[in-house]
Design a protein around this nucleic acid. Structure first.
Lengths: 343, 343
DNA sequence: ATGAAAGCGCTAACAA
DNA sequence: TTGTTAGCGCTTTCAT
């Protein structure tokens, strides 16, 4: 299937007996043009159904007005919120976005970076895959001075701007809340150890424990690769453990929900026998039963801020020095943790 | 912030004392080249950190290898599944995707079409906004012979390929199931009347009723604009109605879930007093309580099929005639409707 | 097996 | 106020 012919400036010029530059100027609404000529050209363009060729412009001005976005997966509500924020913001500022998903694969992520760079995106917004522990591909972007920033799944090893939430504090709020509800033995269910958010949220967990004078124990930290199978397996292992926890803080909501399913299936009362809190505030968490206590993470706003900052950098509206944006999280107490009626 | 310099073929050519055409041929692995020259060039390119400029290629060959995608919203699980399928497929076949969201606005959708066309996408995949009742912008694409196809939210007024599910049949399955469970008065909760899926699913609803010898009544059809407020309002109106339904088929899961919330809040037993079924099979539906009976709609596969078909058209692998892909849906019976233990 | 040259559609410095 | 010209980075036909 071949595309139909597209009208070019050249054709408009010919029809009107003017030069292409004049057409270009008229269509750009340049002031140094006779209003009459401008009018004729604009009208002719409209009548010929002229459509600007952004590709040609991009090549000429060495700017594509396209932002590349790489996320681990498109179907997670959190990431699609991010993208939504990025897309709306970019669009408002005259940019389009090109999207890739790494599917949590390091190799795929590297390939994504490559194609987006080849496509001449003006900048990139990246959220790292679970597998990414080596940052050479990012270092290369950095060395080649291709503007990019990271969000949510970031690394501190690369000196670029980052947009995250106060992961440690959010986790602290959740765990503190569980302790305030009377939990004595709170477990932390964590994703892969080297994930930035796994670490940060653990910090908050430990801080809350220590504040309540509870000695931390590695036996209360449960690690999963975040697949449903593993989540289930680890939860069952926890239930079978000698010193069964009476409260759980899960690193992300989907994990918390998997845990909840197992607890319910095993006939445990939530929150009476075991309280539960997550992190993200996915839509599901509000409607599940019992409703899930969680920490809200403003995905859409993160996307907006990330995109605006990157575009500000591109437009030299802000200094080039990397900046860190840390968004606030808030605790959303719900029934999965409320042991006390007044809480 | 300015981007760093990018190496071009010209520079490689100069360094090696060959012509640009030779470099181009080497990098394309053209057979009519001395293997030795080819090797030298490829190695030089690597050592100079050469990155292909897809933009320049696109302009030259009049193909961007980019697909444009327009969806009503990015954050819905169904649409992000579609996009995921489209992205994976496109990527595998050497294409990138550019994404826009219409935010359910007709004006925005028209603007999206315009920018994507300006960006010289090779083809478009479109799912219509709720507001779209006028198809001139699509007709223009059609007349300008820009390949595009529609998915999920389609219109029959434009002769292009479409990817949908058997909406009517899926709805029929759901309603039949409710009737088999003993419901006597089944209501249909519908989105905006002129939406393709509203109409199709109503067809299925009516068919099931007639098969069970139940006279259809417009008073059992409840219309909402799908906002949570309106959903709630309409549900309350239904509960207050004289002849209260004992079963509800909701056009999409999010609507079903809003309805469920109101029913639970009003103290109604689901499914005993009122049974409920949705359509889409969102992840939430499986974990909510009671779990929601629904019709599964393969979003990812729809995206794959849509993208593959469009690319097949672009590559002349299939005839240009519009084709309709109707994917099968299956009933997913869950607790929100199971009145009989053996069902 | 390789090079020269034209050109994709546009912009912008320079000329007139 | 408008035109001429060169060129963005690449591909491809036509020579050699």
């Amino acid at each position: 299937m071949k595309k139909g012919h597209q009208v070019t400036m050249k054709e408009i010029a010919k029809k009107l007996g003017v030069s292409v530059s004049t057409v270009s100027r008229a269509l750009k609404d340049s002031p140094e043009l006779h209003p009459e000529t401008k009018k004729r050209i604009v009208e002719m363009a409209k009548s010929m159904n002229y459509q600007y060729n952004l590709l040609a412009q991009s090549l000429r001005i060495s700017k594509s007005k396209v932002l590349g976005v790489i996320v681990p997966e498109l179907t997670s509500h959190f990431f699609s919120s991010n993208i939504s924020g990025i897309q709306d913001t970019a669009y408002k500022r005259g940019y389009n976005i090109m999207i890739c998903q790494s599917n949590e694969s390091f190799e795929q992520e590297k390939a994504n970076v490559r194609t987006l760079v080849s496509s001449q995106v003006d900048g990139l917004l990246i959220s790292l895959s679970r597998e990414t522990k080596n940052y050479e591909h990012l270092m290369e972007l950095y060395n080649r001075e291709i503007p990019f920033i990271m969000f949510d799944r970031v690394t501190e090893d690369i000196p670029v701007s980052k947009v995250t939430v106060d992961d440690a504090h959010g986790a602290y709020l959740a765990v503190k809340h569980l302790l305030e509800q009377g939990c004595k033995k709170v477990a932390y269910f964590s994703g892969p150890e080297d994930l930035y958010i796994s670490k940060k949220r653990k910090e908050g967990y430990l801080k809350a424990l220590s504040e309540f004078g509870i000695p931390a124990s590695e036996s209360k930290v449960y690690m999963t690769d975040l697949t449903s199978e593993k989540n289930r397996e680890v939860t069952l292992a926890m239930l079978a453990s000698e010193d069964r926890p009476d409260g759980i803080f899960a690193m992300i909501d989907p994990l918390a929900i998997d845990i909840m399913m197992v607890l319910k299936e095993q006939g445990l009362k939530i929150p009476e026998e075991i309280a539960l809190a997550g992190f993200t505030n996915n839509p599901t968490s509000a409607v599940i039963e019992p409703s899930l206590t969680t920490v809200s993470q403003p995905g859409y706003e993160m996307g907006q801020i990330a995109a605006n900052h990157l575009l500000d950098q591109l437009d030299d509206l802000v200094p080039d020095e990397p900046q860190s944006f840390v968004l606030l999280t808030t605790l959303v107490p719900r029934n999965s943790s409320k042991k006390k009626p007044n809480a």
